[in-house]
Amino acid sequence: MLIIPCPHCGPRPENEFRYSGEAHIARPADPEATSDAEWADFLYMRSNPKGRHAERWRHIHGCGRFFNCIRDTVSDRIERSYPAGTRP
């Protein structure tokens, strides 16, 4: 069980959190203006890197906030976390 740093509550055990996929994939401001390919890319394509990965978590059994963090997918070490809507 990892220790995950919630930007609001501090370090907490992993079971209080829910993983929510890759971070910084913004919903297009005007979806109707996107092509089918662009929309499919937004819906389905993810980077899946080996190493540093910006990802979303929700402190669902805590403060309830979604936030982002940088986790190394090889070592499982979390470098830092930061509130949703901000950049590292």
Partner: peptide
């Protein structure tokens, strides 16, 4: 509820 919170917090804050 999680789906709604996700959109509210991250897409429509």
């Amino acid at each position: 509820l999680n789906h709604m919170e996700d959109y509210l917090q991250t897409e429509f804050p």
